[in-house]
């Protein structure tokens, strides 16, 4: 079995801040990390590999420095990695990103299962997984919290929805997006770290993927950002003081006045 895991390098949101003067995002000096949900995707793939001897390939689309994120997945036990990098990919929305990743999965040719994280923490769209599956014309299940196999070799997954739990059966090839419940990501091992250091990571551009430059990046995107601004800050904060009884009384009044339901 061949599993492709899609990962994204994102700015560490703990350090993202807004310049108070220009009201824009300060990304300089902000460290990049692997999107936390994608680490669960890597772990989910490695757990299948532990049991079945599957081959796991990590994919990412990004600038040349995203190679670092791929090496990290190798050091955790991923077999191979491919970097999708090209100036033409800049400015991709979820559609253009899905187009590029789907083309890479096609080029790998023998992928049985694609695993993505639930969403990336910088964009929070959760769209790339389902859009990729649509482009690849394979079934998918989002919000997967555990993975099993049926005796017939189908995938049996448990989904966590807003209302509860659903158990779905999917034939391969298929795509899933996973939650943290699939398992705590393992630490890099010394052996894999050595291998990761030496590994050659191929770089595929638009031409390698058979994509025309106007089907990727900004030109291949359908959505466009027209304005970026800081959210209005709450300035009306009140502190409730006094004895706990007074505080309880004051909070009760505050919520009553605010017409909070249930109070």
């Amino acid at each position: 079995m061949h599993i492709a895991v899609c990962i994204k390098q994102v700015p560490d949101t703990r350090n993202v801040r807004i310049d108070p003067d220009t009201h824009t995002l300060v990304r300089q000096g902000v460290e990049s990390i692997i999107n936390p949900f994608d680490l669960f995707a890597v772990e989910a793939a490695l757990r299948i590999k532990d049991d079945t001897d599957a081959k796991v390939t990590a994919l990412t689309m990004g600038p040349p420095q995203a190679e670092e994120a791929l090496r990290e997945t190798l050091s955790r036990g991923v077999d191979e990695a491919v970097l999708l990098s090209d100036r033409a990919f800049a400015g991709s929305d979820t559609w253009a990103t899905s187009t590029t990743l789907a083309a890479a999965v096609r080029k790998l040719a023998d992928v049985d299962l694609v695993i993505c994280g639930k969403q990336a923490v910088d964009g929070d769209t959760a769209q790339v997984g389902p859009e990729m599956a649509t482009l690849l014309d394979i079934p998918y299940a989002t919000l997967v919290r555990s993975i099993e196999w049926t005796s017939g070799g189908d995938l049996k997954v448990t989904r966590q929805t807003d209302e509860g739990i659903e158990i779905w059966k999917l034939p391969l090839p298929s795509l899933i997006t996973v939650l943290k419940e699939v398992g705590e990501p393992r630490m890099p091992s010394l052996r894999h770290k050595m291998r990761a250091k030496k590994a050659q990571i191929p770089v595929w551009g638009a031409a390698d993927l058979g994509l025309s430059p106007d089907s990727v990046g900004l030109c291949g995107s359908y959505t466009q950002v027209v304005r970026v601004f800081s959210p209005p800050r709450r300035s009306d904060r009140v502190f409730i003081e006094g004895s706990v009884e007074e505080q309880a009384e004051a909070l009760y009044r505050y919520l009553k006045e605010a017409k909070v339901p249930g109070i």
């Binding site: 910088d122 964009g123 027209v226 970026v228 601004f229 800081s230």
Partner: peptide, 16 residues
């Protein structure tokens, strides 16, 4: 919201 709510972005889909 984007970047964990640190910025807001207004987005359009002009041609589709």
């Amino acid at each position: 919201p984007a970047f964990g709510g640190n910025v807001m972005a207004t987005i359009i889909c002009p041609n589709r």
